[in-house]
């Protein structure tokens, strides 16, 4: 599945990062707590969050996350989108809640990051 395939599943809008839409997605992580994201995320992961601050993009950059989905109708500010563009992250926004967004993606076959990061 690619980032582009997620758009109709979530009725999502693409806020930036069109050039990344054909990249593969293997797992997903849903959290507003970046501490936990840093501890659990695996490769080719999309991040689902309702937290809209610049640290979301910084966390995504560290973990090589190429797609961030803002749930429950949250639209990040320009500063955050500029940061995303600079790093090269596709940003989607959906009206669904975190829970529903995760459920829809899971139903579509995207599983969670099962184990912790690290060696």
């Amino acid at each position: 599945m690619t980032i582009r395939d997620l758009i109709p599943i979530l009725d999502a809008k693409v806020l930036c990062g069109e050039e990344r839409l054909d990249e593969e997605v293997c797992t997903a992580c849903g959290s507003d707590l970046m501490s936990d994201v840093l501890a659990f995320v695996k490769e080719k992961c999309v991040l689902i969050t309702g937290l809209t601050n610049v640290h979301v993009m910084r966390t995504a950059e560290m973990l090589d996350i190429h797609c961030v989905i803002f749930a429950r109708g949250k639209i990040p500010g320009d500063e955050i989108l500029e940061e995303a563009k600079e790093i090269g992250i596709a940003v989607l926004a959906t009206e669904h809640t975190n829970y529903t967004t995760c459920g829809l993606l899971y139903q579509a076959g995207i599983k969670g990051s099962a184990s912790r990061t690290g060696a």
Partner: peptide, 9 residues
């Protein structure tokens, strides 16, 4: 509030 400080660092 910024999403950190969960005692995972």
């Amino acid at each position: 509030d910024l999403g950190f400080g969960a005692g995972m660092g």
